[in-house]
Design a protein around this nucleic acid. Structure first.
Lengths: 233, 233
DNA sequence: CTAACAATTATGGTCATACCAAACTTCGCA
DNA sequence: TGCGAAGTTTGGTATGACCATAATTGTTAG
C-alpha cells in the first residue's frame, strides 16, 4: 500500500472542487469535520489544506476558513508565478520572458490585422482613446497601456490569451510598473500604439508586426537601460 | 504580529535554495534538524515542506528526504500543470491551449525561416531524418515528431521556449500520445514536417507558416475527431 | 422590539509526544 | 574484504492540548 494518505484525500477534494461538489467561493468544511469525514487525523487534513492552497485550489487567509477556488487559466499562471518570480532575478531570464511576450504579441497583431471584427476594432480604438486621454497622468497611462495590449489578446477569441497577458503583466511588473514615466515618454508610447492600431485598421499584418516590434523593442531598451545598466554583457 | 510562522520559514528556505545555500539535488536537512534550526515545531516544518513541494522547490518521494530543486522555467510549467490538467477536461480548453501552441509555432517557424543559422538548419535536418527513419515504428515516430517540433523552439535561442514546448507536450499528451497511429499517418506527418523544413530552407516565412498551420490543423482534426467526436458543438 | 454589547463556542495555528515502518548506518562475522 | 543482521535515524500518522481570534449566541439597555 502507498503510505500517502494525504495524497488520496487531496485528489478527492480536488475532484470535488472541479466537479462542483464543493462550491467555488464557499468556505471549505472545518478541519475537524474533514477529520471525521475522511477518518484521518488533523495532521493529515492540515497537510492536505496546505498542499491544495499551494496548488491554487484554496485561498486561505490566516485565521479564516479556506475559500474554495475552482482554478482557471489565470490561477494556473499564478501557480507558476511562485517560481517565476525567483527566475526573474536574472536579467537574462527577464529578457527571455519578455521575448516570449513579444513573440506572442507579434502573432496576435498579425492575426488581428487579418481577422479583427468590427467590434474588435471598436474596442481597440476605445482602448487607444483612453490611452491618449491619460498621457498627462502617468499612473492612469500605465493602466490604459496595459489595457490596450490586453485588447490584442482578447481579439484572439481564445480564453487562454487574456490569462497569459495577465501573467506577463504580473511577472514583468517589478520592472515595468516602476519605470520612471513622463508625459513625453507616454506620448511616444501612445504614438506607437496608434501606429499599431492604424496598421491593423489597414489590414497589413507585416506593418502591424513591424510597428509592434518597434514599440516593444523601444520599451525594452528603456527598461533595460534603467534597471540593468551596470551589468556586464 | 503575523500568525503565519510557516510562511516566514517557507520564504527563508526558498531564498536559501535560489541562492545556492541549499544545494540542488541534495536532500533537505531532516525535519527534526529544521525544527531546532528554526525553533519551530515539527508540525510547522512539515507544513513548510508540503508547501515547498507543491511550489516545486522540493521533490519528495514517500519515505525519503525531500530533494532540493532549484526551480527553472520547466518546473514553473510543471507547477502550473497541476491546475491545467483539470482544465483540460473540457475540450474547449484543450482547443484553446492547442491554439496557443499553434500561435507560438507559427511565429517560431517564421523567425526560423528568416534567421536560422547553418547549425540550426543542420539540427533541424537531423531531426527530420530521424523522423523519416521512424515512420514504421509508431512509438519512435511520436518521439521524433516531438523532437522535430522541439527543434523549432530551440532555434529561437530563448531558454524559455524549450520549457514551453515541454509544457505543451506534457499537457496535450493525454490526447496526442494515445492517438491511434499507423505508418500511413506517420508518413503524412513526416511529409508535413518536410514541407515546413523546405520552407524554412528557402527562407520563406509565409510559406513556412502556411505549412505549419496546415500540419497542425490537420493534426487537430485528427485528434478532435478521435476524442471529441460525440460532443455537441 | 431592536440594537449594541458581553459571554460562549467554533475554528485555525502551534506545540509536545508517541508509535510505526521503512530507510539508513554500523558493526561484527565469514 | 564483503556481506548480512542489529540498531538508529527519519518520515508518516495519530492524539491531545493550549491559545488567539472569528463566529455565534445570549443578554441587556435604550
Amino acid at each position: 500500500m502507498d503510505t500517502r494518505t494525504a495524497e488520496h484525500i487531496c485528489d478527492d477534494i480536488e475532484i470535488r472542487i472541479v466537479n462542483g461538489d464543493l462550491v467555488e467561493g464557499k468556505p471549505l468544511p472545518a478541519e475537524r469535520s474533514l477529520m471525521e469525514a475522511y477518518g484521518a487525523s488533523r495532521t493529515v487534513i492540515r497537510e492536505v489544506i496546505t498542499a491544495l492552497t499551494a496548488k491554487g485550489f484554496l485561498r486561505s487567509r490566516p485565521r479564516f476558513r479556506p475559500i474554495v477556488c475552482r482554478p482557471d487559466a489565470s490561477t494556473a499562471m499564478h501557480a507558476a508565478g511562485g517560481v517565476i518570480k525567483h527566475l526573474l532575478a536574472s536579467s537574462q531570464n527577464v529578457h527571455d520572458l519578455y521575448q516570449v511576450r513579444v513573440l506572442c504579441e507579434r502573432m496576435l497583431v498579425r492575426d488581428a490585422a487579418v481577422g479583427a471584427q468590427r467590434e474588435d476594432i471598436q474596442r481597440l480604438r476605445q482602448a487607444l482613446d483612453d490611452n491618449e486621454q491619460a498621457i498627462d497622468d502617468s499612473a492612469r497611462f500605465y493602466a490604459t497601456d496595459v489595457a490596450f495590449h490586453r485588447q490584442l489578446y482578447v481579439i484572439s477569441g481564445n480564453s487562454a490569451f487574456p490569462a497569459i497577458h495577465q501573467a506577463f503583466v504580473e511577472w514583468l511588473a517589478p520592472q515595468w510598473s516602476q519605470m520612471p514615466r513622463s508625459p513625453e515618454r507616454n506620448r511616444t508610447n501612445f504614438l506607437a500604439h496608434q501606429a499599431i492600431f492604424e496598421a491593423i485598421l489597414s489590414r497589413d499584418p507585416d506593418l502591424a508586426e513591424k510597428a509592434l516590434i518597434s514599440h516593444l523593442d523601444s520599451s525594452w531598451q528603456f527598461v533595460s537601460s534603467t534597471f540593468f545598466a551596470e551589468e556586464t554583457p
